[in-house]
């Protein structure tokens, strides 16, 4: 039947999609990232594996070279601090004290990041009275840097 063929093809596509999601992402127990403490506790388990670390950019640790795009910073979860190196322009909201996730692996004692994402909180705040709004930064933040 013509009408049914359409739906059967659709149903197969949907099942392939569901199967893809289940196998590709839910395998990792839906954990998007691990903390630096979890990482250093089980170094052997995570050695030579691509993992994603999640934590806060340690204030005062960010160094970015605009010419080579070499970024170094320290990622912290309050107890463990790990140095991270990354090459590339960080996302606009990347700054000290912000939550970030960085995917990469341990190399020569340091964590080499390949993909850097900013994790913002659910808090939205208006500037306090008298607090200057950094319009330059806001304008930059809505421009796609790519």
């Amino acid at each position: 039947m013509k009408g049914n063929t359409k739906y059967i093809i659709g149903a197969v596509l949907v099942l392939i999609g569901i199967g893809f999601i289940l196998t590709s992402s839910l395998q990792n127990n839906l954990v998007f990232f691990i903390t630096p403490s979890e990482f250093s506790r089980e170094q052997d388990k995570y050695a030579n594996r691509t993992i994603r670390l999640g934590g806060v950019v340690e204030p005062g640790s960010v160094k970015f070279n605009r010419d080579t795009l070499d970024l170094t910073f320290k990622i912290s979860d309050g107890t463990t601090i790990l140095p991270v190196t990354h090459r590339g322009t960080p996302p606009d909201l990347f700054r000290e004290g912000m939550g970030v996730t960085v995917q990469g692996r341990l190399e020569n004692g340091g964590f080499k990041g390949e993909e850097l994402l900013v994790r913002h909180s659910e808090e939205y705040k208006a500037p306090k009275p008298g607090e200057k709004i950094d319009y330059r930064r806001i304008i930059d933040s809505i421009k796609d840097t790519q």
Partner: peptide, 27 residues
């Protein structure tokens, strides 16, 4: 894209379960 630095991340549970729900209801 502007806030996290990515349009989509498969590993995120909120994003992934949302995509899964869409497929289930289309099905």
């Amino acid at each position: 894209r502007p806030a996290w630095g990515a349009y989509w991340q498969w590993g995120d549970a909120r994003l992934t379960t949302t995509a899964l729900m869409l497929l289930v209801y289309v099905g």
